[in-house]
Computed example of a mutant assay.
Amino acid sequence: MRRPVRRRPAGLPLRTIAPNALTALALCSGLTGVRFAIAQDWHMAVVMILIASVLDGVDGQVARLLRGTSRFGAELDSLSDAISFGVAPALILYLWSLTNAPRFGWICALLFAVFCAMRLARFNAQIDATEQPRKAAGYLTGIPAPAGAIGAMLPLYLWFVTEEMGLPELGGWLRQWWLVAPWMAFIALLMISSVATFSWASLRLRRNIRFEALAVIVAIGVALISAPWPTLIGVCIIYLGLIPFSARNYARIRRQRANMSAAPKPTAPLP
């Protein structure tokens, strides 16, 4: 009698290596930002967080393009986001400003990192949910972790601009802990809040404005290369300014859905 052939356990598909490698690079970039912050190279510290945000946006697209999505990749992505956009920005801002108030500053840094992890945990808990009305309508709950990290470092961008303009006194005010700590707390609350925010991945452009949208994207890219810090300041202000409009639009969508569900359904005529 022939022995039954044992099948080898299925390994990790090769197509999942590329997106997971990008996620690991994002994690390395976020941690490298902390290393530059320890060396007081604040420009490179911020650049590393920006690179991590770009890699975080690319890895998901690559995974869907190669059909390499996996549960392992989702867990690795959440761990990378928690470190790159929660722990790393908190440590960078603590070393830059909050060390002047060691106790209160460290509490704010801890809250920012913990709130970022809580937001990611809430996101993971809703992955398998069948009904996600906000996602179906094209909205997110709270601001995403990369946007929170970029927004939390707004005082740093302003400080860089004051250095370039030769305004050290104004830069000294921007570096005060009593200004940076409340701003970090505000961004942390936005991350775990239930405010509906726009999801850029769900936006659909009309065919007649695609060329204009491409021109705007190119202009933003050129601005980031030539004048990165003023451009980031403008992007942060515009994004935060859109939050009230996104909350109002989603409230209108909720009312429309409630009215449609409450409306009586037409009954079939009797024969």
Rank of each mutant, 00 (worst) to 15 (best):
Y239C: 11
V161P: 00
L12Q: 04
I253F: 02
T141M: 06
F115V: 07
T141Y: 04
T267S: 04
W173I: 15
A213N: 12
A201T: 09
F72L: 11
R71F: 12
V46L: 15
P4R: 03
A219S: 04
M1V: 13
V114D: 00
L120W: 10
G68E: 06
W106V: 00
A247W: 14
L232F: 13
P9F: 08
L95K: 06
A37G: 04
I83G: 06
T16Q: 14
R252Q: 09
P182L: 12
I83S: 08
A117K: 07
G30I: 02
F160C: 13
P271S: 15
F211R: 15
L190E: 07
S29V: 02
F211D: 14
L66S: 11
Y94F: 11
M184W: 12
G30S: 02
M48K: 02
A201W: 01
M165S: 09
D128Y: 01
L76A: 14
A152W: 02
G172I: 03
V114Q: 00
I17W: 07
Q132P: 02
S70F: 08
P19W: 08
N124F: 00
W96S: 07
G151N: 09
C108R: 05
A136V: 10
T32L: 05
A188C: 10
C236S: 09
L55I: 03
R103Y: 14
G105D: 11
R252L: 08
N124Q: 02
L203C: 14
M44G: 01
R206S: 14
L22H: 01
P228K: 07
L65S: 15
A21T: 13
I233K: 11
